[in-house]
Computed example of a mutant assay.
Amino acid sequence: MDAVVPTGWEIVSGTIPTQITLVGTETPDIIIKIKHNIISTATTKTVKRIITITNPDQTIKIIEQAVKYQRTAITDEATDITTYTEWQVDGDTGDFAAIDLTNYQGADYTKAGYTMMIDGQAGTTIAKTTPNAEAEDSNITVTFTPVRHTMHINYVNSQGDVIKSQEVTGDTGETKVVELSAPAEWLIVDDTKPRTIVFGADGAQDIKINIEYARVYVEPTDPKSVTDPLPDNPTKFYPAGVGYDDLNKAVTRTITIVDPKEFMAGPF
């Protein structure tokens, strides 16, 4: 005979006979008890926190944290309906542990001369969080902002006094070429070429430039008045004492010629 258990069902008791012998009305019924066939399957899921560290030299380090979950899928093959148990943490912890990036697994991820930025905020610690099984993977971005430094070019006279201080700012890793600018009425004694300043992790050292009073030579052929501006400081004017009469002087030598005749005719 061709009797079979319906799809999605299973026999609880009894067996399907391979043949039945009919004995008229006295042939007994055959009862086979069946039930829905239930299939249980373990399913897993992993939720990650991905930390991407982009260093100042653009090299990248990835740190991943993961929490694993497990639940059971229960499928009724008779109705084709699947239900699930609650997700349960599959492991020792259900947290993303806090991370101190100054000492994580023996490594210091901070960089001298740079401020660590975690998702745009200055800091070095990533907080502990507790995800849930329905959460998507999360991402944290770690970048670095160069520290702004300040140094000075000091213009110093022969007594060691700073007459002028020229402030220069720059970020870690930045190189600047700075033109020297002596104070008014002073001259640079040292080399006057521009200075190249490299800002390292600790900034840059101050630079000393030796200076002396500026001198202006006024030639007698080009005298000046108190209304003429100084060549290196047009807001000031030449002092008195450099005019034409101050720089030029006529010296007269008188030669007297005596006529001998007049000399001999004179009284004796």
Results as ranks from 00 to 15, higher is better:
A214M: 12
P56T: 01
G203I: 05
S165K: 10
V4F: 09
D2H: 03
G173A: 09
D90K: 05
S158V: 01
G160S: 03
N55V: 10
G94M: 02
L22E: 15
P146T: 00
V189Y: 00
P56Y: 07
I257E: 02
Q159T: 12
K61T: 14
P183C: 05
P220G: 04
I207Y: 01
W186V: 11
I255Q: 05
T18G: 10
D108M: 00
N233Q: 12
E64V: 04
D206K: 04
E174L: 02
I126T: 02
T141S: 00
V47Y: 15
L230T: 04
A214E: 02
G91P: 02
S13G: 03
L180W: 09
P220Y: 08
T221D: 13
Q105D: 11
K193V: 10
F268R: 05
D76T: 07
M151S: 00
A73F: 07
G113E: 04
D95Q: 08
L247Q: 12
V189G: 04
V5A: 00
N233C: 12
K68W: 12
T192R: 02
A182R: 09
D119E: 00
N132S: 15
V242E: 09
Y213W: 08
V178A: 11
A184F: 05
G113H: 02
G123A: 14
K236N: 11
Q88S: 08
T196R: 13
K45Y: 11
T175M: 13
I257K: 03
P220I: 00
N132T: 10
I197G: 09
W87L: 01
E136H: 04
T221I: 00
I257S: 11
D228C: 06
S13T: 09
T79M: 02
M116I: 06
Y238R: 03
Q70I: 14
A3L: 10
Y114W: 13
I207V: 06
G14T: 05
L247P: 05
V5P: 01
D100I: 00
F268Q: 01
I31R: 12
K111I: 01
Y238A: 00
G173S: 09
K164M: 05
Q121F: 07
E185K: 02
Y213G: 10
R215C: 08
K176M: 08
A78C: 11
K193N: 15
A240R: 03
P194C: 03
I39E: 15
T21G: 09
R71C: 07
R215Y: 07
I20A: 11
D57A: 03
T221G: 14
A133T: 08
R49P: 12
N37G: 14
Y213E: 08
A135V: 06
A135Q: 15
T192I: 09
T83K: 04
P146S: 01
G113N: 13
V177H: 10
E179L: 10
T227R: 00
M117A: 01
K128H: 13
A214I: 07
T130D: 11
D259N: 12
I153G: 01
